[in-house]
Design a protein around this nucleic acid. Structure first.
Length: 339
DNA sequence: CAGTCCCGCCAATTT
DNA sequence: AAATTGGCGGGACTG
């Protein structure tokens, strides 16, 4: 490329300007507008003046949140911020379903091990071909992104440190190297999430160490208007009421189906049945019952997953959820008082 | 020094 | 074989 130099670390080098977060902001700003539908990676890299590699980072993370969806080689479809709530619902749904699964295992006194753990020294030669692609998916930034979000969805701790997240997402691997790598990735994700205003860096009251908190962007009372730089761009519709969730299936989240989802860790354990469900954005959204547009904003083309059993199961959990919520609320208030 | 996290090598996948 | 994707982690940058 005869483009600008890139490694001449002149005196005018500013690391901040090269951050993934800023890149993400620019990326979003570039596409969050009327008429945008398709996104070409080449064009993006060119527009933003960055290496293609970086675009992959952005794109993979955003896809995990539903903002984008891969259409074909080199091409993504812009779904917008509005798709986030839908994606989160899906994630939440899976979380619920898998919690149950784990409950069974736990009840039946099963050792059961972590979620999405990697476990490299596993099956020496037992890895079937089909598991190969799955294995890769396991390490993907996209999946990590979703699991990271899940941590916020299910953990009682509203404050999560990357170390804690890495620990939780890593199973019991005490592998320093793996840990470091995982944390590097989490930083990437945290940066784009921060730039989108989804999370916010805070100080852990106790340890004083840095951590992140899922912001109550959107509804939820007085939203901390951290949102996007250009605030009232598009109106994000967080505040999906669980009662509205319809169990649907989407390829994007298929991988989750294959994994044991359980959020266990030393720091923020959350028993499958413990009332630790924090409700960041889910709550009686009756305030402005505009919430959902009749149908799913996500995977509209996907076939319905009409499984009665799942439906019932889900209904059951929906109630349990709201029940827990009450308790969780109390807890929160107590904590709130100490601020 | 402890957090951060940019950068790009190069392996895995797709075309 | 060529082009895409995208793990991964060395080590530079911050505060």
């Amino acid at each position: 490329m005869a483009s600008r130099d890139s490694r001449t670390k002149d005196a005018f080098y500013c690391r901040k300007e090269k951050s993934l977060g800023l890149l993400c902001t620019n990326f979003l700003r570039l596409y969050d507008r009327e008429g945008v539908d398709s996104i070409g990676l080449d064009a993006s890299a060119l527009q933003l003046g960055v290496e293609r590699r970086r675009i992959y980072d952005i794109v993979n993370i955003l896809e995990g949140i539903g903002v984008l969806q891969k259409k074909e080689k080199n091409q993504y479809t812009w779904k917008g911020y509005a798709a986030i709530s839908g994606a989160l619902e899906v994630l939440k749904t899976y979380l619920l379903l898998y919690e149950l699964k784990n409950v069974h295992k736990i009840v039946s006194n099963d050792k059961e091990h972590s979620l999405s753990s990697d476990s490299k020294a596993e099956c020496p030669d037992k890895c079937s071909q089909s598991d190969k692609s799955e294995h890769k998916r396991e390490k993907s930034l996209g999946l990590l992104t979703q699991n990271f979000v899940k941590l916020f969805l299910c953990s009682e701790a509203e404050i999560i440190s990357l170390d804690g997240a890495a620990l939780a997402l890593l199973g019991d691997s005490l592998d320093r190297t793996a840990m470091r790598t995982k944390i590097r990735r989490l930083y990437d994700i945290a940066n784009v999430f921060s730039s989108m205003g989804l999370i916010e860096k805070v100080r852990d009251p106790g340890s004083g160490k840095p951590a992140f908190r899922w912001t109550s962007v959107g509804r939820s009372g007085n939203g901390s208007s951290i949102a996007l730089e250009d605030k009232n761009r598009k109106r994000r519709a967080f505040g999906a009421d669980i009662t509205n969730i319809s169990v649907k299936r989407c390829n994007t989240y298929n991988a989750l189906t294959e994994q044991h989802q359980k959020c266990s860790s030393k720091e923020f354990v959350f028993g499958p049945f413990s009332p630790n469900v924090t409700t960041v954005w889910s709550h009686e959204t009756r305030k402005d019952g505009q919430i959902q547009n009749s149908d799913s904003p996500l995977c509209a083309y996907q076939p319905q997953y009409s499984n009665k059993a799942v439906g019932d199961l889900f209904h059951h959990y929906t109630e349990a959820w709201s029940s827990w919520r009450g308790e969780a609320k109390e807890k929160q208030q107590i904590e709130h008082a100490s601020e």
